[in-house]
């Protein structure tokens, strides 16, 4: 089975090095029959990305670079398109490159996808023991986002705006993200609803650091997401 791990990055710096190191460490210590390709999409970072782990791994790394910063949604779509068209991947995993997501959760996601015959599995941070570690403001924002997404998509998942996902070829063929920025997370659920894809959730671990929280979505970005959803609904060409 060909697995493509798509990682959008933007000015991640040392966070990305640490994340890649852990990804390589996971693959080395948990040999699977899966063929893993990692597609890194640099979304116009000011400084070039360094892959210090290349020689230490037999993972295939691919680097795609946006000449200008477009947003995480756009970077994800670029990576998914590349893996779909040029790597002929069967399973697609999307993760953030800032180290919040743990590569050791990849097998959990893929196993859930395959064993339950699902089209897409969403990572759920609240199914793990890390529940209490979610900052209070972030938890309140996520709760509002969960109910908002349920209202507009009908997709009932218990976590929102979690970039850790795993999906099959059928889902990848249906995904054409028009939300360039953070609202792509809600757009994923809209796609699931529109194409009647089978979905589920798997427990994942998220590590919050001051650094990742500062760079990640702020608590007012929820309003920006709503504005972006409305903007694309009103003005962008339909599929």
């Amino acid at each position: 089975m060909k697995v493509a791990v798509v990682i959008p990055t933007y000015n991640e710096g040392s966070r990305f090095d640490v994340f890649l190191q852990r990804l390589v460490e996971w693959y080395a210590t948990n040999k699977t029959s899966w063929s893993i390709s990692v597609v890194v999409v640099d979304d116009g970072s000011a400084k070039p990305i360094h892959f210090n782990v290349l020689n230490a791994s037999d993972i295939d790394f691919y680097l795609l670079r946006h000449r200008v910063n477009l947003g995480q949604g756009a970077a994800l779509q670029t990576g998914i398109s590349y893996a779909r068209l040029h790597l002929d991947s069967d399973v697609f995993v999307t993760m953030d490159g800032d180290g919040q997501h743990d590569p050791y959760d990849i097998p959990v996601m893929i196993t859930k996808l395959v064993d339950d015959h699902l089209d897409i599995v969403f990572g759920n941070r609240f199914l793990t023991m890390d529940h209490g570690k979610v900052p209070t403001m972030r938890k309140a924002l996520l709760t509002a986002a969960i109910w908002f997404e349920r209202l507009i998509t009908g997709v009932k998942v218990a976590d929102a705006h979690n970039g850790f996902r795993c999906f099959n070829r059928r889902c990848a063929d249906a995904v054409h993200l028009r939300q360039n920025r953070m609202a792509h997370a809600t757009e994923f659920k809209q796609i699931v609803a529109r194409h009647k894809l089978q979905y589920g959730e798997a427990p994942i671990h998220i590590t919050y650091t001051q650094d990742s929280l500062r760079k990640g979505q702020s608590n007012v970005d929820g309003l920006v997401v709503v504005k972006d959803l409305l903007r694309v609904y009103l003005f962008n060409s339909s599929d």
Binding site: V41, L64, H66, Q77, T78, S81
Partner: peptide, 16 residues
């Protein structure tokens, strides 16, 4: 977006 995407896919690098 389509232009930037096409360029980045065309110039993708297989790092291994």
């Amino acid at each position: 977006t389509e232009l930037v995407r096409a360029i980045s896919i065309d110039s993708a690098t297989h790092l291994s």
